[in-house]
Design a protein around this nucleic acid. Sequence first.
DNA 1: TTCCGACAGTGGGGTCGCAAT
DNA 2: ATTGCGACCCCACTATCGGAA
Length: 508
Amino acid sequence: MLLIDVARVSEEVSRTSSRLGKIGHLAELLGRVRSEEAELAIAYLYGELPQRQIGVGWRSLQDLPAPRQIATMTLTRVNDLFDEIKRQGGAGSQAARKALVGELFGGLTQQEQAFLIRLLSGELRQGALEGAMIEAVAKASGAPSAEVRRALTLRGWLPAVGAAALAGGVEALRGFHVEVGRPVAPMLAQSAPSMAAALAKVGEPAALEWKIDGIRVQAHRAGETVAAFTRTLDDITAQVPELVEAVRALPYDDLILDGEVIALRADGRPEPFQVTASRVASRVDVAKMRAKTPLSVFFFDALRVAGRDLLDLTDTERHDALRAAVPDNLLIPRLTTGDVPEAEAFFAEVVRRGHEGVVVKSPKTPYAAGRRGAGWIKVKPRHTLDLVVLAVEWGHGRREGRLSNLHLGARAPETGGFVMLGKTFKGLTDELLAWQTERFLALADGPTDGWTVKVRPEQVVEVAFDAVQTSSRYPGGMALRFARVLRYREDKRAEEADTVETVRSLMF
DNA sequence: TTCCGACAGTGGGGTCGCAAT
DNA sequence: ATTGCGACCCCACTATCGGAA
């Protein structure tokens, strides 16, 4: 199959607003792809590469050769070039990589180039990704989408599942099973603004668990072999020897457990997320890092114990199996209750201990792998500040032509100025986007680089955030984590905004 | 007919490792 | 030695479609 066929379908999908329409276009292409190229077609059409990454990002996609008129590039040839690009390494590799990227793009038409740029920069922006592709595979293969989802849960790579479905239908999908050593897409949590809201969503009684601010890890053990995978299924076994040792010491040798690794201080309180992230990301001298910043591991779910798959069991049943396999000191603290005051006391205690919040779990739900199911609801405390908008950036995509991303500043009374604490684009409705575009154009002040519009510091905005963290990027040495807009404060003047000192007092 | 679950999009700060400067 | 880039860790929130109620 030619790349142009895929690029054309992608464009068609972009133009179609109906979700069923998008699925139809995708399925139509899957219906005519040769089986050897099915995996490639599926991957490219939902924004993935079989290579996962090839070391080419937005910067490497500048200054591309002129397009050709005639489309001749096949999917197989694209894949071969991706392989070659990925293999480049060592001194001079950037030049070699650039040459290969040039060779690839020099063989493409305008439309194909545009498609590959979007694919490689991770922004397909066609309104259809994995969810739509699952349905398209189901439609093209004649298999129920639930079967496709199930196989995907167990295999973790949709192109492989899709190719199997297209070749062998439901029968082939049923051939996928849990394999120790191959990660399962982890279940994710929705969020709620309060414990009461979370309990109401779940329906009481619920299991409450500490939410600790570390790195999600899925641990596998087959015999004496242990492996650890992140949320995106990357193998980080080498970076977490503490986990490997802990799992190897368990009394079962055929296991898949779900948990979190985190760096704790000597007094048991959590280190800031940055410390845990630094430790887990370090690959060069793990032993040295470990001596300085040891990791603790805590488990909260079990997908397989003693060779028995637990995915379809209820939360309660899985937790019983977990407790049988893991000693108490490796378990995330948990309380089952339907009582709101009791739940709120639990929440307050978790926060008092310095942890991130609570996950409220429905006792009856199975492990909804890869989904943000209603079975898990996270609740976190929320801080707010009244800050001043210092500048605004033009938006992309559906926000094109709107001023979108706000630069936020706290008041610095001693200088009479403002200190930037970060940016946010979250929490804005279309109505608010329209309003702020007009408002900030009216406040525009000074030269613009065509991207960022500086404004007179007069507009106060109430911002919610999770924490203040140390920052080497911003002048105050601190930045907001997960900042989002709550509302504009038309009743407040900039001189009444929160100060840098107030923000500093919120750091831990 | 209305409601709500699932998805996709729009970007945020921080960290590491590597190659180029 | 420093800087830029790619990849990946954490992520919140809104709009939209279409099936559920």
